[in-house]
């Protein structure tokens, strides 16, 4: 089963969380990213996610693998939506199980932070005023070492 998945369908968070269960796990931390109705002071009606799927898949897998190397965890998974989403929809889900809560929290945080930084997925927000726009939020140059 892939540790990272791009999904065109609704995310089943409960089923995903059950998949993290293990006899060695005493903690489970999950993160849910939801579509909210505003950004930067503008009213948002819905959004579209576009992804470069093959690279999103491999980079997402790499991030989960990094989390497994950095933290003492048992299982980890991440699912990110693609396509059109409405306000309140679950856009991204991260779940980690571990023997203890510290590693579970830290790995969960690591995965969502790195996904937002590195995985080639883009958000197009549709605003109440009829405008829309792709978000390219990083106004600083990408790290020189990666160029």
């Amino acid at each position: 089963m892939p540790k990272f998945e791009l999904s065109e369908r609704e995310i089943d968070a409960q089923a995903l969380a059950r998949g993290l269960a293990h006899a060695r796990a005493g903690a489970c931390a999950t993160f849910e990213g939801w579509v909210r109705d505003h950004n930067e002071g503008r009213a948002v009606l819905r959004l579209d996610y576009q992804a470069y799927a093959p690279l999103a898949q491999s980079e997402g897998e790499r991030i989960v693998e990094e989390a497994r190397e950095k933290f003492a965890i048992v299982e980890a998974r991440c699912v990110h939506r693609a396509g059109t989403l409405a306000i309140g929809d679950l856009a991204v889900w991260v779940g980690v199980s571990a023997a203890h809560r510290g590693a579970a929290f830290e790995a969960c945080r690591y995965i969502i932070d790195e996904v937002k930084k590195r995985v080639p997925i883009w958000k197009n927000e549709h605003y109440a005023d009829g405008e829309s726009g792709w978000l390219h939020p990083d106004n600083t140059p990408v790290e020189p070492g990666q160029r």
């Binding site: 996610y49 470069y52 690279l55 937002k116 995985v119 080639p120 883009w122 958000k123 990083d138």
Partner: peptide, 29 residues
């Protein structure tokens, strides 16, 4: 830059038929 589905340096030599993607700052999550 991604070449054939993997991140690559800007100066990497391209070959016939390569798939090249220029990746704008990402905004998933």
């Amino acid at each position: 830059v991604a070449i054939n589905g993997a991140f690559a340096p800007w100066g990497q030599t391209l070959h016939e038929g390569d798939e090249v993607v220029f990746i704008p700052p990402v905004s998933g999550g």
